[in-house]
Write a protein that binds this DNA or RNA. Sequence first.
DNA 1: GAGGGCTCTTGATCCGGGTCAAGGCGCGCG
DNA 2: CGCGCGCCTTGACCCGGATCAAGAGCCCTC
Lengths: 253, 253
Amino acid sequence: MRLENQAGRLPEPPSPIADDGDEAHFCRTCAFAGACQAVGYGKLELRELHCLVEHVGPFRAGEYVFRTGNPFRAIFAVRSGTVKTSMVDKEGREQVLGFYLPGEVIGLNAIYPEHFPCDAIALETSYFCRFSFPAMSALAARMPAVQSHLFRLLSKELGSASLLAGDHSADERMAAFLTDLGQRYAARGFSGTQFQLSMSRGDIANYLRLAAETVSRVLSRFRAQNLIQVEGRQLLILDPAGLHHIGRSLLPD
Amino acid sequence: MRLENQAGRLPEPPSPIADDGDEAHFCRTCAFAGACQAVGYGKLELRELHCLVEHVGPFRAGEYVFRTGNPFRAIFAVRSGTVKTSMVDKEGREQVLGFYLPGEVIGLNAIYPEHFPCDAIALETSYFCRFSFPAMSALAARMPAVQSHLFRLLSKELGSASLLAGDHSADERMAAFLTDLGQRYAARGFSGTQFQLSMSRGDIANYLRLAAETVSRVLSRFRAQNLIQVEGRQLLILDPAGLHHIGRSLLPD
DNA sequence: GAGGGCTCTTGATCCGGGTCAAGGCGCGCG
DNA sequence: CGCGCGCCTTGACCCGGATCAAGAGCCCTC
């Protein structure tokens, strides 16, 4: 059977950026501003951010958004597309650290590469807002709201890094992963029950510390239990509550 | 046989704090200032920090330094003793997130508890420097060096959170853990080859995502291979290079 | 000094998921 | 078109470490 609906797909390419200093428009198009009100950004902060932002893209699937060696450090807000961050250990093995959807921010952990070398790779054609770190840092020094927002983002990042920490079964990890993705899509106004898995099974496996075969097996099992419907990379969550229940020990709340 | 030398043990209780505004003294006794020069703190920053700091303790083994529920948020620098941070999931299972030695900082990840609820528990009698978060935040807004230091610490924290991420064997984890502890002790002027494991086997196991029995077994194996000497919680590393080699895939550099 | 409750060690057994292997698509390319 | 190459799925086997169980050393209390 086919999954007809394409909800969860992202508009590409994004609308061209107006250069008229319209904060509301900026807020909509630039993910970093994010939930402006929630963060406590006023017109002042938004105007400053607007001056700072640099719209970059497109990056095609497989292209580096930034790498460890890159001397020019910056923070990127995903405008459209999907990105994975990863680090390669001394043996050359890749370790996927996370996936980032539109509206999310990457590069925070790369501020001090001596502590945390990592790369960001586009998984599909993607566009970004870029903020050079020196400028961002200077802005943070001037504006408490911006500083506090940055700390908040870093803190959140730290939280999700520890999420995969515990020893949980393959089912738990996979259920939590799908639920988390759904919630993040929903938070950005997309469908939380039907979306694309923009990453390969191998990437998911690597991220969840499983074998690719296991990911495949678990997805098949979930399908057999009528929890989900999968066709290739199209996913439809049939029983969000059931899925959430399986992954509950890894999920917030 | 007995391990006679007590190197690696920490002076307790710490020397009383002089209230004379001597920055050098503050720098020595208050871990947060840490490597002052490296961080780029000048007299000005140190004086400000000195005004902010609040010396607290002792906390006895098992006492909470802070908990999720605690409304008063602060950053703590370990002056003496050892602390573990952990979070409890909805099923009530504990997950140890890290161990903190004198000179290290806890509480950064607890700044925004809604993102990352976690507790800190003293493993032995411990003393701290406390900086209330609002004051620290205000200071960071005024002083770029302090802000950058905080970001650096958070970034480092993020790095070590991802350290345990990969799927590695019990031997690799244990070897990396012991090597890391040794390096951190050495960085603070203690012996990096002979020190106390202030945490129980169970805590180590929880932290490394192993069973306590496995920790025991690996330690015995390492002893049989003449890599280490263990008697209770006293540890002597006989072959640092060998240990480092086993854990190399998890270790920085 | 006896008893109970820790932590730690070691042995025996078992199982989840890694690994190896064999196809089945879908797609780009010669 | 046929071929090769990824990616994905499913099956068979096996191993590392979890689990269960027993016992030893230690400290604290009574």
